[in-house]
Design a protein around this nucleic acid. Sequence first.
DNA 1: TCCATTCTCTGACCTTAGTCCGAGAAGTCG
DNA 2: CGACTTCTCGGACTAAGGTCAGAGAATGGA
Lengths: 297, 297
Amino acid sequence: MDASQVDRIRRFNRTVTQRIGALDDAFLSRSRPLGQARLLWEIGPAGSEVRTLRARLALDSGYLSRLLRALQADGLVTVDADATDGRVRRVHLTPAGLAERAELDRLSDGRATEILRPLAPEQRTRLVAAMAEVERLLTASTVDIAVVDPRHPDATFCREAYFEELRRRFEGGYDPALAIPADDAALTPPAGVLLVARLHDEPVGCAALKLPAGEPAHLKRMWVAPAVRGTGLGRRLLHECEREAATRGARVVRLETNRTLTEAIALYRAAGYREVARFNDEIYGDHFFEKVLEVPG
Amino acid sequence: MDASQVDRIRRFNRTVTQRIGALDDAFLSRSRPLGQARLLWEIGPAGSEVRTLRARLALDSGYLSRLLRALQADGLVTVDADATDGRVRRVHLTPAGLAERAELDRLSDGRATEILRPLAPEQRTRLVAAMAEVERLLTASTVDIAVVDPRHPDATFCREAYFEELRRRFEGGYDPALAIPADDAALTPPAGVLLVARLHDEPVGCAALKLPAGEPAHLKRMWVAPAVRGTGLGRRLLHECEREAATRGARVVRLETNRTLTEAIALYRAAGYREVARFNDEIYGDHFFEKVLEVPG
DNA sequence: TCCATTCTCTGACCTTAGTCCGAGAAGTCG
DNA sequence: CGACTTCTCGGACTAAGGTCAGAGAATGGA
């Protein structure tokens, strides 16, 4: 790794936590502990379940309970049992709580404005653009790719999202029953492998390989959630698949794809795949690609 | 202010504190309180005065003293009186303290590396470039410009730095005694005004105006510290001067400058100054500029 | 020389953040 | 129904961060 890049990130950290961290101070400046303020904000105008708050903010249950008691005592929230499940409790902001939250927003906006104010208009534009870029790439780098059992909820979520997308994009729709199948067993090692990409523990992409012994690996089910497109995740998934294929003994990766999936086709070409003649009878396949893997050295 | 820009800054804050804040966790992961770790790092290999640490980290004197006691008890620092001033104390890292600090650096680098690792090489380059841009512009926006008495230490610092720069850059050097003077009285309101730009309370630039009643304001002593050049500070100082001139009744700003100060000349032209005939006998003046101020509406 | 100032340190005190544990109510499944 | 799980809550406790006031040593200036 380039040392100057590492150094840059550390310097960035120092400048940014000083200057941007001030936005969080807005939460402190209302004579309310930061924890309470953050919780108040996180509850949101529509209310939340206590358990989701606990998960989102990663708080101890006792601690969260106490924070809620404090907000309740100040008349900012109400806590009552969920209608369908008596164990879970729901929190709602009272009008006073909503007002307080709006005030936090206002303060936070004020801090942001103070950052922009001293800058010339065109500097502001540049700052905002650079921030968007940093955010985008940090998000991309937060995405985690792991081998997952095809029966895992995240795996089925991705499969359904993938099918749904094909249904929407293919001319004449998509019916998985008509396609060459890739059932759970076929994507479980060592017969195959399924990779799932997650962002903050939410599935945001997948890719699968069938690994018939002695034959080319077969890439299937490459999907990237719309929210994270344009972050290079497709390329990363493809790269991980090739690594998996190589370490599991395959020398070649093959795939077929539909003509409507233009980004995917561009991705395969950019990654060094070359178009070959049809090698199976997949009815949804218009283009067939192949790449000879480099021997890992 | 553009609401979408404000919004972007807030979103940036959320993503970045999550992801980059992890760099600070490195400081926590050594079973040492964050405060102690930060202090240890801030002392630096060369040692520091206790009072400068207190100022830099904005710590209560009692609190800082206790932190130092704790580090001392762990054998990481030594504290002893300054040689020239027996009141101030100096802190130095022991070999163990240096090792601990190096370890913190190493951990911090590790976190930074983890951010870069999942990215493609060209994404890394983009991230680092965008970070540099954000840092640069946030720094620019942190610079504070204020009217300062010419006898203030920051003002004299800027004056000396300015003269030193002219000495170095003018062909044949610079002697203030030969130039048209602008003494302290002439730069004290209402006869004139001196603006000093500061970054983290350190002077990093200045600009002055002489304001003879009923005549054009005369801009003098425009200087920007090398470290913050290219951040738009010159333009900001110039803009602030025009504002001061306008609110104090001037309709026109004039200035002369030397041909070697090319950035300054470019700045004046870009800001709408037009070159005019020589209007005084300043021996270091090669170019003479003038701008008619817009009437503040 | 004396007085005000600067600098550091200690003691006393407070709030916030956070952990651990066990009780108890509500739901689920065989 | 009974056993197990899920979810919430309060008690007990700890560590860390932080504030305030006062004492005492060293310095600088009138």
